[in-house]
Deep mutational scan, measured.
Amino acid sequence: QVNQQQLQQLMDMGFTREHAMEALLNTSTMEQATEYLLTHP
C-alpha cells in the first residue's frame, strides 16, 4: 500500500502512476522515491 499523497506528488512531478507506485513500494522516503525514479527511467 502506498501513501496516496506521496503518489500524487510524484505524479504532479510528471511521473506516471505506475512508475511512481513502483518507486514508493521500493523505497521508504519521498527523497528515495524521487531518486529511484530519476535513476530508473
Rank of each mutant, 00 (worst) to 15 (best):
Q1V: 03
Q1K: 15
Q1F: 04
Q1W: 05
V2F: 07
V2D: 12
V2M: 09
V2S: 06
V2Y: 03
N3Y: 04
N3M: 06
N3E: 03
N3T: 06
Q4C: 05
Q4W: 00
Q4T: 09
Q4S: 09
Q5N: 12
Q5L: 04
Q5H: 09
Q5E: 13
Q5M: 06
Q5V: 11
Q6A: 13
Q6S: 08
Q6D: 15
Q6V: 07
Q6I: 09
L7Q: 11
L7S: 03
L7N: 00
Q8H: 10
Q8Y: 07
Q9F: 03
Q9I: 03
Q9E: 13
L10S: 01
L10I: 10
L10N: 01
L10V: 08
L10P: 01
M11F: 05
M11N: 04
M11K: 12
M11Y: 02
M11L: 07
M11P: 00
D12L: 08
D12V: 08
D12T: 10
D12R: 11
M13N: 12
M13Y: 01
M13R: 15
M13A: 12
M13F: 02
M13K: 15
M13Q: 15
G14H: 05
G14S: 08
G14M: 01
G14Y: 00
G14K: 07
F15P: 01
F15Q: 13
F15V: 12
F15S: 07
F15L: 04
F15R: 07
T16Q: 10
T16Y: 06
R17G: 09
R17C: 09
E18Y: 02
H19Y: 12
A20R: 00
A20W: 00
A20E: 03
A20Q: 00
A20F: 00
A20N: 00
A20P: 00
M21L: 11
M21Y: 07
E22A: 10
E22M: 06
E22C: 04
A23V: 00
A23P: 00
A23S: 07
A23Q: 04
A23I: 00
L24C: 14
L24W: 07
L24K: 07
L24V: 10
L24E: 03
L25M: 14
L25T: 15
L25R: 14
L25H: 13
L25E: 15
N26D: 07
N26G: 12
N26M: 07
N26A: 10
N26E: 08
T27A: 11
T27G: 05
T27R: 07
T27P: 01
T27V: 06
T27K: 06
S28E: 15
S28C: 07
S28A: 11
S28H: 14
S28I: 03
S28V: 05
S28F: 03
T29M: 04
T29R: 04
M30S: 08
E31P: 07
E31R: 08
E31D: 12
E31W: 01
E31K: 14
Q32A: 12
A33H: 01
A33K: 02
T34W: 05
T34N: 13
T34G: 12
E35L: 07
E35N: 14
E35Q: 13
E35Y: 08
Y36H: 12
Y36R: 13
Y36P: 01
Y36S: 10
Y36E: 09
Y36F: 13
Y36G: 07
L37S: 10
L37R: 08
L38V: 13
L38P: 10
T39D: 08
T39E: 10
T39S: 12
H40N: 12
H40F: 09
P41Y: 15
